[in-house]
Amino acid sequence: MSLHSWRRPDAAKSPLEGPVAILGLGDVHRGDDGLGPAVIRQLRARYLFDEDAVRIGDESAPGFDFGTFFAGVRAVILIGAVHDALEGPGTLRWFRRDTFRAPGPRRALERFGDLQDDFLLLGAVPGCLDATTGLTPQVHAAVPLLVQGAIVELERLGVRARQRRGAKGEAGPTQKHI
């Protein structure tokens, strides 16, 4: 799968007013549900962003405040596990506001209210949602692709990401049962 397929050539760039919000969704203590936070860790470890241009958050962080995080943003990128009974674990999925058909992504959108039209949900199909830490190997393998997908979307929105010197692409450990 080409990451360039994540771009929509017909989509006009958003005005450069306000930051782009990138939020990792999921519970790190429920196996593959921790995908969003794993991708956020990699984004922070591998790239530098202008703080006025990008807000990066992890909903599982203590004290996370959705209202403050999304205030004044011009675009939203959500990253997390996306349930799809027809696809196998680790299969990449992405949805824009106008392509939400499945109940799972539609519920995710409703959860965040009436956010910007420039809205993207990136994810992978989970394999295990048990009480474990870490990701299954299939979902773990999707992390670098989702990081790249977020970077491609930021570029489409006119936001530059600078790669950190010596940054590695590891996503962290695979599963441990707790």
Rank of each mutant, 00 (worst) to 15 (best):
G63D: 14
Y47V: 09
T133I: 01
L48R: 08
Q138M: 06
A161G: 12
A11K: 12
L122F: 08
L115E: 07
P144D: 09
L109I: 09
A71H: 04
A75T: 12
H177P: 00
F100Q: 15
P62A: 06
F69L: 04
A45F: 09
V54L: 12
R162D: 08
D114K: 10
D27T: 02
G158T: 07
R165Y: 08
A161M: 08
A11E: 13
P144W: 02
G123H: 02
V73T: 11
P15N: 12
P15L: 14
D65S: 13
V139C: 01
G158C: 03
G158Y: 03
D58G: 00
D98H: 03
R111F: 10
T133K: 09
I40A: 09
A102G: 11
I77T: 05
F66Y: 11
T91S: 14
E51Q: 08
F112H: 03
A124V: 12
V147W: 01
D50P: 06
S14N: 12
R8M: 04
T99S: 13
P105T: 03
P103K: 07
E51M: 05
R101L: 08
Q175L: 00
R106F: 13
G88W: 02
A161P: 03
A61G: 13
L25C: 10
P103F: 14
A161T: 02
G63V: 04
Q116M: 10
F69H: 06
G80W: 00
A11L: 14
L25T: 00
F112S: 08
F49R: 11
A131P: 13
P89G: 05
